[in-house]
């Protein structure tokens, strides 16, 4: 996989050819230095602002590090794996982890299904319905998560909400049962995150040459067939990033659960990992325990991403 493409992998690819006017020579030299040149700004920004803090995060997770240490009131002490031991020793952590994985999985699948189908739908309609759907979706996306969650809670309120009246549900309480509360939050999460998938995939479809689609349509292929055998393969790089991003976001869902289930539901039945981390650690400034949770989340998500990419590669998709 790390083989050079075509001519491009000469060791030390001669500085001379870099300035030479011959197109082929230039391509050769490019593959050694140019990519790094192009990458330089991104690497500077990401190295400084993401890699370094993540490194600090790992470091903090091995120390006793609370607000008192941060502001210099008490000395930092090395704890080894103490924070991790505390975390893994908590039975609630494992329950929350399981709930998080299942809930995030459901959110990812629903969001992708809704987002992709609506993206395809957008390519089938004329300008007015398209703009209407796009604007509605953008509005949902643009609404601050904290407000979106509040509004959804209002809509489904047993006493004051219009939805129960429209559906004739009386004063059924959505947030009391564990599953119905998760379901309500899932609806809100899908509502505010499908637009991202839809717009991205739509932009991707638009980048597919029109002739390819027309040819497929002329062949009489069904919508599903066109998606399966024409669009999905061409969109794969975009679908990959959309999927990975959705996994990351939904695994880290916070505001929706926090606001809609009032901090984790009846007796904590709707806790997810990020809310758990907030309540256990960040809200009371126990950064070291919080960082340990962060490291665990990082490792889980990294593993999921790597497995996913490996599966893709097995299917012949090159990175």
């Amino acid at each position: 996989m790390r083989q050079g493409r075509g001519l491009s992998r000469p060791r030390g690819g001669s500085r001379k050819s870099n300035t030479a006017p011959r197109p082929q020579g230039r391509r050769r030299g490019r593959s050694q230095r140019t990519p790094w040149l192009y990458l330089a700004p991104a690497l500077v920004v990401l190295g400084g602002l993401l890699v370094y803090p993540v490194y600090q995060l790992g470091l903090i997770s091995f120390f006793q590090y609370t607000q008192a240490q941060v502001s210099g009131g008490e000395p930092t002490t090395f704890e080894g794996f103490g924070n991790y031991a505390e975390l893994f020793g908590d039975r609630q952590f494992w329950e929350v982890l399981l709930a998080t994985v299942l809930f995030a999985g459901a959110c990812v699948v629903s969001t992708l299904a809704v987002g992709c189908s609506l993206a395809v739908l957008l390519t089938r309609v004329r300008a007015v319905p398209r703009l209407a759907l796009m604007l509605a979706a953008l509005g949902a996306w643009a609404t601050p998560a904290i407000t979106g969650s509040t509004v959804w809670l209002f809509l489904f309120d047993p006493d004051f909400g219009p939805v129960n009246r429209m559906l004739g549900l009386g004063d059924y309480s959505w947030t009391y049962g564990r599953l119905s509360a998760f379901f309500l939050v899932l609806l809100e999460v899908v509502w505010c995150s499908f637009p991202f998938v839809m717009v991205t995939v739509y932009a991707g479809i638009k980048a597919v040459p029109a002739e390819v689609l027309e040819a497929a349509a002329l062949d009489g292929a069904s919508q599903w067939r066109i998606w399966r055998s024409v669009l999905a393969p061409m969109l794969r790089p975009i679908l990959v990033v959309v999927t990975i991003q959705s996994v990351i976001w939904d695994f880290k869902v916070f505001t929706q659960i926090y606001v809609m289930t009032n901090g984790g539901g009846i007796a904590g039945q709707n806790l997810v990992l990020n809310v758990y981390a907030y309540q256990k650690a960040f809200a009371s400034s126990q950064y070291s325990l919080g960082s340990a949770i962060g490291v665990v989340m990082l490792l889980i998500l990294l593993a999921v991403t790597l497995v996913y990419l490996r599966l893709l590669r097995r299917q012949g998709e090159e990175m």
């Binding site: 490194y55 470091l59 091995f62 120390f63 590090y65 240490q69 941060v70 502001s71 210099g72 009131g73």
Partner: peptide, 18 residues
């Protein structure tokens, strides 16, 4: 890479708020 980073560890940053 990660272990290399961890091995070179020193204490996390703090401020002095005397």
């Amino acid at each position: 890479l990660l272990t290399a980073l961890a091995v070179t560890a020193c204490a996390p940053q703090t401020s002095t708020n005397s």
